[in-house]
Amino acid sequence: MRIKNHPILSFDGRETIPFYFNDKLYYGVEGDTIASALVANNVKALTSSLHLERPRGFYCAIGNCASCNMVVDGEPNVRTCITPLKKDMRVYRQKGRGRLHAKE
């Protein structure tokens, strides 16, 4: 849900950036982080808790809380709230701790 009208800020004219989340095509815009683009697309669960695998979503937005750690281009535990979105990135919801060289 992007803001359309705002009394102070304008978010017009940002270029569209295509990317993949769980192998499905999504679009973000220039200036997005991976996590902000997902929230804009109403994706709420980004990762899961280590033991009970409860869904975890966007929380702190400063790269501090680990609640948005995802697998990006094969790399686990990427802090998606401070990682700029890039064209054609392949992003996966992370389960548990995440492993190197694994998609999920």
Partner: peptide, 8 residues
């Protein structure tokens, strides 16, 4: 989210 990225 709102003021930097323009997202509700």
């Amino acid at each position: 989210l709102m003021n930097e990225y323009g997202i509700k």
